[in-house]
Amino acid sequence: MFTGIVEHIGTVVEYKEYDETESGGQGTSITITDCEPILGDCKIGDSIACNGICLTVTEFDKNTFKVGISPETKERTNVISWQKGSKVNLERAVSQEVRFGGHYVQGHVDTVATVISKKPEGNSIIFGFKLRDPHFNRFIVEKGFIAIDGTSLTVTTIDHDDVFHISMIKHTQDNVTLPLKPIGSLVNIEVDLTGKIVEKQIETTLKNQFDNRNSRLHQLISQIIDKKLESVPK
């Protein structure tokens, strides 16, 4: 679990694709450096969110760590756009000593979005985004949480064409990678888990109610149908 409060910015130093003859199968390994501030308590198997993707540390030293990337992760995220020199937001999994300053972030990226606009507003920047997969739009609400490249942010407005906007203050600009990205770049998106949980609970409850002929909902629908049928001329 993560909070969406970026701790550090690292640099991709190696991006290696494995073929079927190598031990990594068809996976990918990525090595990230300039990471000494967050590796003091690191252990093999630890989770580190890299641009919002929860990844497992497979190797590390004082300044560098390596992670493996699955085909599923490559399909869901912007990781295929990473290359040597790319900057990535980093956050270690929460511990008991961490203040929960952002929101509940799993590190399970739902989809990607394109940076549509960047507009200065005082010392803030207003960013606009468009999702690649529009079925996730229903989970984006005004004043709701969203994680963009692992950064906990608040949706400020949503346009009629489903372009959504966030406002980034100067402090955040100085500590995350988003201001470095030009218009047209892809960013990782994790929508607020709360919306997905609520939707699933409602779907399950309604299905159970519909399937149970003795349920209150089933009885209510039957009563409505009966009344409608009674009003139909014979």
Rank of each mutant, 00 (worst) to 15 (best):
L178G: 09
L229I: 14
E17H: 13
G45L: 07
R213S: 15
V176S: 08
D226K: 13
I169G: 01
D174L: 13
S185A: 15
H218N: 15
E97F: 11
H103Q: 05
K66D: 00
S23V: 12
E199G: 09
P233R: 11
N188Y: 15
I189P: 05
V12H: 04
V163C: 01
D41Y: 13
K207Y: 10
K207P: 08
T177H: 02
I158C: 06
P233A: 03
V176C: 14
N175I: 14
A49T: 00
D174H: 11
V115H: 01
G150N: 08
V187A: 09
V198P: 13
V98W: 00
H108I: 04
K84S: 13
P182C: 14
V191E: 00
N123S: 02
G24V: 03
N123A: 00
V198S: 12
I116Y: 03
T114W: 04
P179Y: 12
S222C: 08
K84N: 15
N175W: 07
H135A: 08
S47W: 02
I183F: 03
N89Y: 06
N188A: 15
N137L: 05
K66P: 00
G40R: 13
T177S: 12
D192R: 01
P37H: 12
T194A: 12
I32V: 10
V105F: 04
K118D: 02
K227G: 05
I183A: 11
K118E: 10
K87Y: 07
E199M: 11
L220E: 15
T21K: 13
E36V: 10
T33C: 14
I166V: 15
V232R: 14
V176P: 02
T77V: 03
C35D: 08
T11P: 10
V88A: 04
S152K: 00
D211T: 04
I197K: 09
P233K: 11
D110M: 05
I53D: 05
K87D: 08
K200T: 15
F210W: 14
L217I: 14
N208D: 15
